[in-house]
Design a protein around this nucleic acid. Structure first.
Lengths: 232, 232
DNA sequence: ACATATCTGTCTGATAGCGAACATAAAAAA
DNA sequence: TTTTTTATGTTCGCTATCAGACAGATATGT
């Protein structure tokens, strides 16, 4: 494994610490639908994503779900369990688009975190920034409508992957946005009519970022600001 | 100041550390509406609440708001700024009901946290638990209706204060729940009709906890579980 | 007691979203 | 190719909530 990875956390780690850590990482490919961990379970591994999108979801007993965090190559999953993880979490973590990641057994990474203060600080920052993004999304979920949230999510996904195309069906987007599939269809249709996006079966493409920004709620810019200085 | 306070974090601190910290705390009374900190600002103090309720809010540019965290005497405010706080937060923090708290200049507490690993661990746990509760609330905000969320909020408020009476108007509850005042009026009226609560001007009382639980969403129990083992 | 401010109740029309059903279209598998 | 599966488009009635207005009730201060 090379000195440089495509994961922002690993890149931010000072070279000696990085080299030591990278020696223990194992490259993996995660297909869409792969479950990194279930609610109330302690994950076996930690993942440093290098490409792809991973959603952290809350599921209610009636089966409805909502995404509470979207992750890409900016950090480590699951930051909370790496830092502490004695209490259960109400979330499950699912791969949305084909993802590549370095993985390491959770216990090993915890030991590394205890050894390296620089690593611990980065994981801590990752957890803190994620919490701040979640803060904005919690309010967004209450105050903004489906079209605004869909536009916001698509823009964030593009920022994370660098790709204007996202391979997801409207049904999965509905699970993510916590809406019904038909609501997503209507919202996506409205965005396509204005030529901000285009899509075909299980595939959305952003064709007018500025237009899409104008359709998104202010939460997009707030969240983008938090992603930008992820490790400050 | 005595050995025992009414703040769970301070109580959880091993006596030697506690004594050292408590010597620096200053007792304050915070009236409803008092602002502990504004969005994007670094707070001057940290507060250990001993009674009362404090809301952390997100405000959108159109003036609508939603509470993203309700705090009482379980921890320290603002845990994030005590741990790190180099990035801004999109939240403001407001006193909801008459609150008493011990305060300490933020910089002083940060120094104490660096000195005392026991203290740092407790603040960290406080932040982590708050994040997990927020996780559930983020999904709740998307998936549950006003009546369920009102019931959930009232039960949590009672758990935090130990008081079945809550001195808040429906207008303020609307800000908290991220709904309009009339929506809260309708939800509160429905809960009163079923004799789960009673209220008069700016004052709500829970009169049937079990009934109220049946009207609340499952998020109440999830959040209660997270509060119960706050420092595990 | 009075005047004032604030809170609650209710009404209106408008809209977003739910929940369910079904038709069509497009990809994948046989 | 044909069949099967899956995704999208659209309809329906229904409910929750919004957004704004206004009347009446209840505290609060003078």
């Amino acid at each position: 494994m090379g000195q440089y990875t495509d994961n922002l956390l690993l890149e931010s780690l000072p070279p000696p610490h990085r080299t030591a850590l990278c020696a223990r990482l194992e490259e993996t490919a995660l297909p869409p639908g792969a479950v990194l961990y279930e609610a109330e379970q302690i994950p076996r591994y930690a993942w440093f994503v290098t490409s792809g999108l991973v959603s952290t979801m809350v599921a209610m007993s009636d089966g409805r779900t909502a995404e509470i965090s979207l992750s890409g190559s900016e950090g480590v999953i699951p930051a909370y369990h790496v830092l502490d993880g004695h209490a259960g979490t109400p979330t499950r973590c699912v791969v949305q688009t084909a993802t590549s990641a370095y993985r390491i057994p959770l216990g090993e990474l915890r030991r590394e975190v205890q050894r390296s203060e620089a690593l611990r600080a980065l994981v801590q920052r990752c957890f803190e920034r994620r919490t701040m993004i979640l803060t904005q999304i919690a309010a967004c979920n209450r105050l903004h409508d489906a079209e605004q949230r869909l536009a916001r999510w698509l823009l964030t996904a593009q920022d994370l992957t660098g790709d204007s195309s996202i391979g997801l069906s409207q049904g999965f987007l509905a699970d993510i946005l916590g809406s019904r599939r038909t609501t997503v269809t209507i919202a996506a249709g409205a965005l396509r009519r204005r030529a901000f996006i285009d899509y075909r079966r299980s595939h959305i493409r952003i064709i007018d970022r500025d237009g899409l920004k104008s359709a998104a709620c202010e939460c997009y810019e707030t969240v983008r600001g938090l992603f930008q200085n992820f490790y400050k």
